[in-house]
Design a protein around this nucleic acid. Sequence first.
DNA 1: TGGTTATCGTTGGGGCACCCAATGAAACCG
DNA 2: CGGTTTCATTGGGTGCCCCAACGATAACCA
Lengths: 148, 148
Amino acid sequence: MSDDTPYAPSRIRALPSWLLGRAAARGHRLVADALATEGMRMMHHAVLSAVDELGPVSQAELGRTVGIDPKDMVTLVNDLQKDGLVTRTPDPKDRRKNAVEISTAGRQRLRRTQQLGDQANAELTASLTPDERAQLITLLGKIAVPDR
Amino acid sequence: MSDDTPYAPSRIRALPSWLLGRAAARGHRLVADALATEGMRMMHHAVLSAVDELGPVSQAELGRTVGIDPKDMVTLVNDLQKDGLVTRTPDPKDRRKNAVEISTAGRQRLRRTQQLGDQANAELTASLTPDERAQLITLLGKIAVPDR
DNA sequence: TGGTTATCGTTGGGGCACCCAATGAAACCG
DNA sequence: CGGTTTCATTGGGTGCCCCAACGATAACCA
């Protein structure tokens, strides 16, 4: 069911960059569709998850950790705050910063979105054995790091 | 070298979908920058390469093969035609179709962009052994095929 | 044969991830 | 203290991906 396709008369398809783009697009589609049932997008979930793990944290640090532009972080936190999933309070220690913290509702939402994300990723890697999945994660980890 | 990084206190980073997005973004950046020196983008190169391999071909079939929306294909072929890299002639057999064919200039351009693409992919996978690179390509091939 | 159905190129519109520059306020540091 | 840096925010921009519609043409089929 996977080897009879008139697949591709194209040199392009052997390039990691091309395959990565395709695989990423499919992964994004799966995860986005899953998270949409909770009214969230990938970035929302990523930020919410980071806030949960980091505790009260500034937007700038969030951006650095998750790899999101400060500009987009503003919008993201706005959305999360509007839905009551995180709180944004001025940091008394440093009045430039916002202390972003997850709320109870945020924790509940996070539990569901994590499950949805895991399911979507399971579907994404459904054609892989557990070993292969682990290999893929390791390999991707090596090339995904732009560094800094 | 991989376990001391203040890496990420984030569950997200272990998800294939997230890693794929990150790796794809880096790959896209590398390839796009390389192709930009020839005034082309990834899609241009992909289409040009497909035209070269498929011979005279309709835009619809090109779109199906490379996985590009017909709408975007119009723009892409417009660009390539404007630069004299492909010819677009009405198909006498089927007057709905355009027969897209690569030109001599297109072949020359393609040779350069292929080299640039290969270099960028080499840089992308620089931290991988040849074996690992082959593994990655195999694994990606398994999950990249979404649908059609 | 004639009517329906499907395909092709094209136009129009939209969403999302990613990225850069600039600004005022505040903190840091020598 | 004065210069530099950081922070949140605003503004703008690009590239890839997807959907809907339409006139022209071809294929299908009853």
